[in-house]
């Protein structure tokens, strides 16, 4: 039977419009980096092509070609038009196509991010369940202590410590990774540690909140075991806040991956962007920002949709 969602279609189109508006607004902000950045883009590009001292004529020619001689609104509209069609322009430093370069590295970053999220959930959910099953006893105290530590350690510190202990100490894995599944565990663990810490703290609090509600007492009063009350009733109710935290975590990963990818020399988007930022290669940075925003907006939209699927009260017309 197909699950009918009352008002579901209306919500989706409305939310999609809002997401598009957000993307449009974000595109304006991201584009605005170009006129705001110091220096003449045409000169930067020519220098990047190896022309040491470009002549005024060369610069003028390129300015016309890039439509930098047009008015500011015209420049934005033409940039947006190309971006919508998937043309993210070319790198200032090596002239390569930004979209191709980003897409080439995207699978490695996606693999890293998905593994990190799965790993973090695989740690956080059992830890929180255990803590909520025995609140105030040793499993609770232990997980809370580790979680407090975990949310305090920045990912680059975790990465360095993992490299020091696991790779140098035990001789497992390698300091250089190639972006394959067998290599993904260490960088993913570095990213997952902080996420798992934050998520287990949040989920534990939501589970205890659900366990203080009358409906869980009601189920217990009908003879359900504590485990059933916790897993079948408290956990689904606590999953909506967790879902939103996972959405925020994706946002954090989109930036945070850059750090871990650099430490582990993971061949993903993040490391590519860090080197582009160092060289002030603006088209690459802008393309990355738009791609990250598109992913983040899509994830946020999915999180809202999933929450509505889980909690029927969110589907109720306000």
């Amino acid at each position: 039977m197909i699950r009918r969602i009352p008002g579901g279609g209306g919500w989706l189109s409305q939310a999609a419009v809002q997401a598009l508006v957000s993307l449009l607004g974000a595109s304006l902000l991201v584009w605005a980096l170009l006129p705001l950045a110091p220096g003449d883009p045409a000169r930067r590009i020519l220098e990047g092509q190896g022309i040491e001292d470009p002549t005024p004529a060369q610069i003028e020619g390129l300015r016309t070609e890039l439509r930098l001689d047009r008015s500011i609104p015209e420049q934005y509209v033409s940039w947006l038009g190309r971006a919508v069609r998937g043309d993210l322009s070319t790198s200032w430093t090596d002239g390569s196509d930004v979209r191709t370069e980003l897409l080439r590295r995207a699978p490695a970053t996606a693999l890293l991010a998905v593994t990190a999220i799965a790993l973090a959930l695989a740690i956080a959910v059992p830890a929180a369940l255990l803590a909520a099953r025995f609140p105030g006893r040793w499993p609770d105290t232990a997980t809370r202590g580790v979680a407090l530590l975990g949310s305090a350690v920045p990912s680059f510190v975790t990465s360095l410590l993992l490299l020091q202990v696991v790779v140098v100490g035990f001789g497992w894995g390698s300091t250089l990774t190639r972006g394959t599944i067998s290599d993904v565990w260490l960088p993913a663990a570095a990213l997952a540690f902080a996420l798992a810490a934050t998520w287990s703290r949040l989920l534990r609090a939501s589970l205890l909140e659900a366990l203080s509600q009358p409906y869980t007492a009601m189920v217990a009063a009908r003879g359900a075991s504590r485990t059933r009350v916790l897993v079948r009733h408290a956990l689904p109710n606590a999953s909506v806040p967790l879902l939103h935290a996972v959405g925020l975590g994706v946002g954090a990963l989109l930036g945070g991956a850059a750090i871990v990818e650099t430490v582990f020399t993971w061949p993903g988007v993040g490391r590519y962007v860090v080197s582009a930022v160092q060289r002030r290669d603006l088209p690459v940075v802008q393309g990355f920002a738009m791609m990250a925003t598109l992913v983040y907006v899509t994830v946020s939209l999915s999180v809202d949709g999933l929450s509505r699927l889980i909690d029927p009260r969110l589907r109720a017309p306000a």
């Binding site: 930022v277 920002a289 990250a292």
Partner: peptide, 25 residues
């Protein structure tokens, strides 16, 4: 409110990276 929503649609570390990329470290 709309401006805040738009800025929040971009992950914050991505904003920071983009600005460093435009202005230089």
């Amino acid at each position: 409110t709309r401006t805040i929503d738009v800025v929040l649609a971009i992950p914050s570390l991505v904003i920071a990276l983009a600005i460093v990329g435009a202005l230089g470290p």
